[in-house]
């Protein structure tokens, strides 16, 4: 009985500070869905995996602009006018295109508003897409694999000798 109480007290004494430290270490939390549902179940496994299209085939601004860019529907349709037109998801795509409506894709990777991030700079600096996005070609549903937290970015910046001045990223 006494021993039990002792153990409980010990566990509390060690556990509580540990939990508090863990909490503090990670504050503030990111509670977004790491793998949100998309309006069209686009298959990176097919396009980037099986067919081995390069990332830049669709995300064509990645080397030229801050944003990588989402492919325009006309680009999708340039193939899907004839390919796999009978599939349910492609029909969705076609209906979007014909209605002249853009697709509102759910963002998987989202940096906060106060962060300046340039895809161009990272690509030109020799960072691979997979470094931050993971092996998208093998993901049935694209999900976030990196924390994209400050400490994570910083570790890489320090390793590569990239600038660590606050204004590099904080805007």
């Amino acid at each position: 009985m006494n021993r039990l109480i002792l153990i409980v007290i010990l566990v509390l004494l060690v556990g509580f500070p540990a939990a508090a430290l863990f909490l503090l270490y990670n504050l503030p939390f990111d509670n977004r869905d790491p793998a949100p549902v998309q309006p069209i179940a686009f298959q990176h496994t097919v396009h980037a995996g099986k067919m081995q299209l390069p990332c830049t085939f669709c995300h064509r601004y990645v080397e030229r602009a801050r944003q990588a860019g989402i492919p325009s529907l006309s680009l999708c349709m340039s193939c899907h006018r004839s390919i796999a037109t009978e599939r349910e998801e492609i029909k969705k795509l076609t209906s979007f295109f014909e209605a002249g409506q853009p697709v509102y894709w759910s963002r998987v990777h989202q940096l906060p508003d106060f962060i300046y991030f340039s895809h161009k700079r990272h690509i030109k600096g020799g960072v691979l897409c997979a470094t931050c996005h993971g092996e998208v070609a093998q993901m049935e549903v694209v999900h976030q694999v990196r924390s994209l937290e400050m400490g994570w970015c910083l570790a890489c910046h320090r390793d590569r000798g990239a600038p660590t001045d606050c204004t590099t990223c904080h805007k």
């Binding site: 270490y25 504050l27 503030p28 400490g151 910083l154």
Partner: peptide, 14 residues
């Protein structure tokens, strides 16, 4: 709400 920035403790932001 972020008073803990004043405390010296290891954190993911380094």
């Amino acid at each position: 709400e972020i008073f803990y920035y004043l405390l010296p403790y290891p954190n993911q932001r380094n």
